[in-house]
Amino acid sequence: MRNSIAIIVAILILITSFLAFTNTPIFVRGYSAVKSGFSETIGPMLKLMAKPMDLVSSVFDSYANLVGAKKENAELKKKLDSLLLENQKISDLERENRRLRTLLNFVEKNPKSVIGARVVGEDLKNWYKCIIIDKGSASNIKEKMPVITPRGIVGQAVEVDRWHAKVMVINDTNSSVDVSAEGKDTRGLLEGTGQEVLKLKYVLKNDDIEIGDKLLTSGKDGIYPKGLPAGIVITVNRNKPGIFADIDIMPFSNFKHLEEVLVIKR
């Protein structure tokens, strides 16, 4: 009897989740409320969990350096180990300082228009490319706000809870950005492939675009402001059938190594 109840409950949840997936209005609203309540609970836990990440990655880096040091200086191992660790800390601090300085410069140039945020996690599924940042609606972050680094665009906020927000990265298959080649009048749609390399779509074969061209946001998609760096052209194939060229783009930012990002207020 109890087993039957569990199965009936499961079937009801199955139907509800299906209706939420198909965007049936009443179900979406209820489902979103439950989901965001859930997300708000796990937000602070995720922040807490992200703290040891710095430690783990610095230990990881330190270890990599120590392996090299051991080979070179077996006799002075202990002394060198401590020196290298100290050195590592300093160089880590210097790197962080440089990175934060670049961010600060950007913020100073664009006062009141950006919110700095820290990346605390990433999508659990590799089917979607998304990062989780430690700022949410409590910090005035809203859906569709563009997220960037000083190097280039990262993506847009797609789900915002009180404590954190999910950012769909531009290499997600659902992402597309209107871009134009720097100094040229060639425009196209930069689409995610789910892999590291992106595709530039709807560029005619006779359009002026070459390997090495920089792509900037055109500002015409209503999400990203004009002139932000998006990527660089790495291959142009005009030999495939059809009227459009097959163009591969490498984004400027490495989305696996993001630590701080900027959210642009709209």
Partner: peptide, 28 residues
């Protein structure tokens, strides 16, 4: 099944909370 449905519901919601997957998809 009773324990299974509780764990599934919780884990499904958790995974959706930590993913950009559309509403209901992972839970489904």
């Amino acid at each position: 099944p009773q324990a299974g449905i509780i764990a599934t519901l919780f884990i499904g919601f958790m995974q959706e909370g930590l993913s950009a997957a559309p509403h209901g998809s992972i839970l489904f």
